[in-house]
Simulated assay, not measured.
Amino acid sequence: MKTVVDNKLVQTYHQEDIQQILQIAIARQAYEGEFSRQQLLEIAAELEISPECLQLAEQEWLNQQSDSQERQKFNLDRRKKLQKRFGNYGLVNIFFILLDLVSGGGLSWSLYILLSLSFLLGLDVWNKSQIQGEEYEKAFQNWKRRHQIKRSINSLLDRLLKA
C-alpha cells in the first residue's frame, strides 16, 4: 500500500506480506539453507522480536514438526494395514472361487462374495485415503493415544526388568 507523507511516497505492507517477503529473502540467502542458532537470534533481534517470543515460536515449530512426523508414521501405518487387507481379500476370494469351482463346476455363489468383499474393500480404501477432516483427526488421535500407551507400558516394563 502506498501513502504520501510529507510529499514523500511511503510503501507499507500487511503482516502477511512482510512474512512472505522475508521468507523469500531468507530462502534466497546463500547460506546453503542452514542458519546457526546465533544467526536466528540475531535475525530476531534485528526484527525486534523478543527472545521469549522467539523461544515460544521455536517451541511451537518443534511441536508442529513432531506432529508432522507422527502423521507421516500414522499414514504409513494405515497404508501397511490397507496392503495387508488387500492380501487377505485376495486370499479369501481365491479360496471361495476355488471352492465354488470344485463344488459346482462353475462360478455362481462365489461371485456374490467377491462383489460384497470388493464393495467393503472399496469403502475401506476410500476412508483410508482421506487425509483431512474430522474422521481422519479422530483416527489419528486414537492411533496417537494407543502408541503413547504402548510406549508408556514398554518404558515401565523396561524399568521393571532393569530393576
Rank of each mutant, 00 (worst) to 15 (best):
A25R: 15
L41F: 10
L62P: 00
L41T: 07
K81F: 12
R78K: 15
A27N: 15
L54T: 01
W61P: 01
Q55F: 04
I26L: 15
A45L: 08
L47C: 09
E42S: 12
A44G: 05
E58A: 11
E70T: 10
G33W: 03
A27V: 03
G33D: 02
K73E: 15
I43P: 01
A30P: 00
Q64Y: 09
A45M: 09
R71C: 03
K84P: 04
L22R: 06
L47S: 07
S66D: 14
Q69N: 06
L54V: 02
D77W: 13
Y89R: 02
A27K: 10
Q72L: 11
L47M: 08
S36G: 13
N75E: 05
E48D: 13
E32G: 05
F86H: 10
L56S: 12
L22C: 08
Q38T: 13
F74L: 00
Q38P: 05
G87I: 10
R71W: 03
S66Q: 15
Y31A: 11
E42V: 05
R28W: 03
A44Y: 01
L62N: 02
R71V: 07
D77C: 12
I26Y: 14
R79H: 14
Q23P: 04
G87S: 05
W61H: 13
Q83A: 04
L82P: 00
I24R: 12
C53P: 01
Q83P: 02
R78C: 11
D77F: 15
Q23C: 12
E46W: 00
E58M: 11
S68Q: 15
A25V: 08
A25C: 08
P51G: 00
